[in-house]
Amino acid sequence: MSEQKTLKSGSRLEKILTEGHFAVTGELGPPKSADVEIIKKKAGYLKGVVDAVNITDNQTAIVRMSSMAAGLFALQAGLEPVVQITCRDRNRLAIQADVLGAQACGLRNILCLSGDHQRFGNHPGSKNVFDMDSIQLINMLKRMRDDKVFACGDEIRNTKKQPVVEPRPFIGAAANPFGDPFAFRVIRLAKKVKAGADFIQTQCIYDMERFKRWMTEVVNRGLHEQVYILAGITPLKSVRMAEYMRDKVAGLSVPDGLIERLEKAENPREEGEKIAVEQIQEIREIPGIAGVHIMAIEAEKSVAGLAEKAGLLPRPA
């Protein structure tokens, strides 16, 4: 990683990665209601267990509390949020407005996503935006932070007499090594790095062989030296969940061996956790990996146990 240690955002996640610690991020899905207690409860499970926590943005195109508002509550509950922003629901005006708001609220990490298509959610009749794609979003944020300008080129200041007060996010992006065409997957990562991504969180990994092939390409291109790569882990809770991941999530493969292990296990949930611990240990050995991103979908409570067993605790201050 770069020699100079000047921080871009000053977020805890950035510090931890810059200091060379193996980072751990988690995920907190905002409620499908205005219930703040749920956020506080989930935050309690994750506090001290992860370095930062992704706050999803209408994930799977299902309406939830905004990632910005839920992120603010998570921050108040003592977590460091990674606020997710998708290109599906907002145009360049709305996104830039939210990025200014995030900075003002002390939300220091932003993850840029294209967003799941609304066909999969609970408002399939809605209109999508896609004013830009995730790579253009990354670059818009980088320009806001480093060049201190809006997408239109105007300086980020209230009036000509007032100071420039730009947002300073630590910019994240996603990578899916399992989508097609496989050869384009590293190119896409390279484009995200070129656009200005500081860290990457990958799609959840079950097909370790393919992931390693992808990482070899990443390292060959030297991309791991330009961006911190956090490998995605989602513990499997049941055979049904594994089959769902394999059959219903496009671009995701779950090897038969894993499904067999869950089938044979007396307690599939425990077996799933065991698999996740093994995956984390295997991933730590892969050159170029800077951390793990644990996405325990609606199972935030289980992350502490997993982190403990995987030897990820305690987290650095």
Binding site: S114, D116, D133
Partner: peptide, 22 residues
């Protein structure tokens, strides 16, 4: 492209098909 992406495929590209209507 279902999302009008200009910089490459999203994660929903599988076996040459779009996840929105494979």
């Amino acid at each position: 492209c279902s999302k009008s992406l200009l910089n490459g495929p999203c994660g929903g590209s599988a076996d040459g098909k779009c996840e929105v209507d494979p």
